[in-house]
Design a protein around this nucleic acid. Sequence first.
DNA 1: GACCTCCGTTAAAACGTTTACATAAAATCT
DNA 2: AGATTTTATGTAAACGTTTTAACGGAGGTC
Lengths: 326, 326
Amino acid sequence: MATIKDVAKHADVSIATVSRIMNNRGPISEKTRQKVYASMEALNFRPNEMARALQKQKSNIIGVIVPSIQYPFFSILIEAIEEVASQKGYKLMLCRSGEDEAREIEMVALLEGNKVDGIILCSRVGDATIYEGKKVPIVSIDRRIEGLTTVTTDNYYGGSLAAKELFTCGCQHPLLFGSKLPEYLEMNERNRGFLEECRRLGMDPLYYPVSQDMVTDGTIAQSLIASLDQYQEADGLFITSDVLAAEILTSPLTKAAGLADRLPLVAYDGLEVSRYLDITTIEQPVYEVGACAAEQVIQGIQGKMMHAYSMMPVQLIERATTKKFK
Amino acid sequence: MATIKDVAKHADVSIATVSRIMNNRGPISEKTRQKVYASMEALNFRPNEMARALQKQKSNIIGVIVPSIQYPFFSILIEAIEEVASQKGYKLMLCRSGEDEAREIEMVALLEGNKVDGIILCSRVGDATIYEGKKVPIVSIDRRIEGLTTVTTDNYYGGSLAAKELFTCGCQHPLLFGSKLPEYLEMNERNRGFLEECRRLGMDPLYYPVSQDMVTDGTIAQSLIASLDQYQEADGLFITSDVLAAEILTSPLTKAAGLADRLPLVAYDGLEVSRYLDITTIEQPVYEVGACAAEQVIQGIQGKMMHAYSMMPVQLIERATTKKFK
DNA sequence: GACCTCCGTTAAAACGTTTACATAAAATCT
DNA sequence: AGATTTTATGTAAACGTTTTAACGGAGGTC
């Protein structure tokens, strides 16, 4: 691969001149400029971005850390981030933390070692105070971290929308079926919003926390059946993710139980799958969250002010799983 | 951020010693080793990977180019790639080409400029001969490119499986409904395999090519209805992607037409959505394709031999959309 | 002609590493 | 004890850029 030296030699100028032409700085006569362009062309020259980054102390790389890549929420997020990043001249270094605290910490360190200019972090676990002192701008998604800028959606309102929707279906004892979450996650707000709104509306909500294991090992439908056994009075369902709801609704177990016809259901996320299965859901503007995070982190990189906290709106998408109960 | 110089000064040794300790090379007395470790600890030192890459002429970065990030096929692929890459000490630089030829070329050049050690490329469009001369190892997914190693699945067999399945449903005039594809894409083989197998079985297949636009602008169900109007004799459906099939099956238009009850349907890909909607499909081992591509590219990086061509098996997943016609 | 200014260019020192080579000290052999 | 090997360390030149400071020449002013 040709280097700046080769170009300089070929064009019979100094490397400084070539560099200045590449970066449009300093005065350059039109003649040399053309000569150098020609040489670049001839040698098929591309500057070595690593050398550049080293010298300029700026890599134009944004690091992204997600728990999973293929989970639809995250893949949309990544797509959004890449779209605004690439449009503003940044590249993406992608890491997967797998919901593992140690891995997450390691990924941040790895990105720092790779001198990324900024980091977008979807942290789900562990103590986040370690991120406070960092000099590289970090944007956290869906988790408030002291000192970092956070982008999230209005989970509390989303939860309350779900409650209202079940209320209009005539529910008295809606069952909240979703992961037990640490307080510090914004997602927890959707549970809180739901439960509080239920009480405000005079309903008597039930809560059946599920563990992450059930989701991955395919016993989730089973536990729903179990929970309905336990809470005989349950007359409505709030399942806190579309994917969870899809797994449950399409399981032979729940189909046999005629679940879909017996209980109104509201899910959460607004992913494609909810549309395919005609599930009422609370839609989050996932794409916008990603875009906002990317914009924020770039602001930070450029030394401009970042928001401390951005919250995007959510909305109810009314579909069959509640409509047919009205 | 502390550099190797700071560590050297702090430990009162030369930077060469620190470097040697970092890389476990050359003899080092236990005493200095401990001293240096302590200094690294104290200064919270992390080597600058860009400087390292520059010097060693090896970045430990693999570039990945996909048309879209959020399309499930690709997000699974990326997840698989990242899994084996990170396990072998490589990082990922992720690019989105958006099915755009110019962008794709630009992305390859960009990755070269960033000195990635290898590239995994999902090329869908344009003339691929430009990639032939490259010195960086490139693995192409689902597209044969002269001189590069290719990883794909047995599309021809997949197509023929679909034909057989429709045959056992008693079809005589199955309709192939899928994107019109350039010859050079392996995906085209699934069309060929389907059509040829149909003829071998004595069926008389129909073919309605769809354009990419219909998929994105939501008129896909409409065109299916149109195609069925045109081919009144159609008595079975092969839709060449799960997502397409899902869009069609869940559209109000086709629901009204009672499509699902009238025509047996085989889709393609084996994505989650096919399970949710209980669609018979041909499953591709997407994860394994990604893993294989990553392994191959790493082989190439290490100067070992790469396969010229790897083909993974596919399998029929029989579900409701054909079962109920048997 | 001496002095200044501007313009175009270059030489050389960074950026943070690795590594070939040199060297000093310690250990082993006569 | 001296010669030789081995072990541990340091010096300095790379890697491919950017950028500061310096420089030579052209043109203008006095």
